[in-house]
């Protein structure tokens, strides 16, 4: 009985193995590429795509604390959007975020380009030194880096206040940088730009080494000035790379959260609400998850509008470079 059973099982196993191998050869011919792509696609659709759809759905719900416990929101149509668009604070948030993004992107791109060009002109020892400094700053994780700056700007023990007072820039003893939002955002900008420069500068430096030397020498022989060479030879070669960096910087700076959040002790006041902080605040501090979702939807929309052009260009240039 037992023997018969095991023989039966064995033959079934053989049969299924035959079935599997012919299936496998069929898959290998036709469906293999699809079968290989499917798992990654499913994960991305599940963890990235589905939540974004859910976000759209949530933005049409009234979803407060009660709804949170009931696991069920209440449909209110476009009411959340009407509320935030009528809210003067939201207008402030969007303006501040756009200005902040523009300033940070412009500053970090400009300074990074200057540092990259500088790296071309220094002796090889200083170049290695610059490279090492950039890599170390880059690799310092964002939270320790923010901690660091926070305590350098600390009003009581901060080395910056001490330094500024010492060099005679005025009396900065016990100066609180975060009392005035313009000063506060300046500090945040310093931190964001400082953190953004290494990657941008190292990348641009790598890009500069790809600019054909013969072209530059030919231009020099023709008597072109440094600025002319930069504009007519260097910039066109770097253009695809600059586009990639510009779009990445815009996306990163538009959704800055950590620097604001941690610099202000995880309790930023209303003056410091950039859009990601505002969305978080509405959702998790005020417990209006529907409103927070509507803010997030607006955030995605604004980013899509700003970056549409860049992204299209970027994808095009990446396709040319990668394919």
């Amino acid at each position: 009985m037992r023997a018969a059973g095991s023989i039966g099982a064995a033959s079934a196993r053989t049969r299924s193995r035959v079935g599997a191998s012919s299936l496998r050869s069929l898959v290998a011919r036709k469906g293999l590429p699809y079968a290989l792509i499917a798992p990654a696609t499913v994960v991305i659709l599940g963890v990235l795509g589905w939540p974004l759809l859910d976000l759209l759905f949530l933005s049409t719900q009234h979803y407060g604390l009660r709804e949170l416990f009931q696991h069920q929101g209440r449909f209110v149509g476009l009411q959340n959007f009407a509320n935030i668009l009528a809210d003067p604070q939201f207008k402030y948030v969007v303006e501040v975020t756009l200005i902040f993004t523009a300033v940070n992107v412009a500053l970090s791109m400009t300074l990074a380009t200057i540092i990259a060009l500088l790296m071309e002109r220094v002796s090889s020892f200083v170049r290695v030194l610059l490279g090492a400094g950039l890599v170390f700053v880059w690799a310092t994780p964002v939270i320790p880096a923010i901690d660091l700056w926070q305590w350098m700007f600390d009003y009581e023990f901060g080395v910056i206040n001490w330094l500024l007072t010492r060099v005679g820039a005025g009396n900065y003893i016990h100066h609180n940088w975060f009392e005035n939002p313009v000063q506060g955002f300046t500090v945040v900008t310093v931190v964001v730009v400082w953190g953004a420069i290494p990657f941008l500068a190292l990348t641009l430096h790598a890009g500069l080494t790809q600019v054909p030397k013969e072209l530059i020498e030919a231009a020099q022989i023709d008597g072109a000035r440094a600025l002319q060479i930069f504009r007519n030879v260097t910039l066109p070669t770097l253009k695809p790379l600059l586009l990639v960096l510009l779009s990445l910087s815009t996306i990163w700076d538009f959704q800055v959260f950590n620097q604001v959040w941690v610099m202000l002790n995880q309790r930023p006041n209303e003056n410091y609400f950039v859009i990601s902080v505002f969305s978080f605040q509405e959702s998790f501090r005020v417990s209006q998850f529907g409103l927070g979702s509507a803010v997030a939807v607006v955030m995605v929309a604004i980013l899509m509008i700003i970056s549409f052009f860049y992204v299209r260009q970027t994808v095009r240039s990446i396709n040319e470079a990668g394919a």
């Binding site: 974004l52 969305s279 959702s283 927070g292 979702s293 997030a296």
Partner: peptide
């Protein structure tokens, strides 16, 4: 190119 931070609420739920 998506702001991943935007999915926080749905992912949290």
């Amino acid at each position: 190119f998506l702001p991943f931070a935007a999915s926080l609420v749905p992912l949290y739920l």
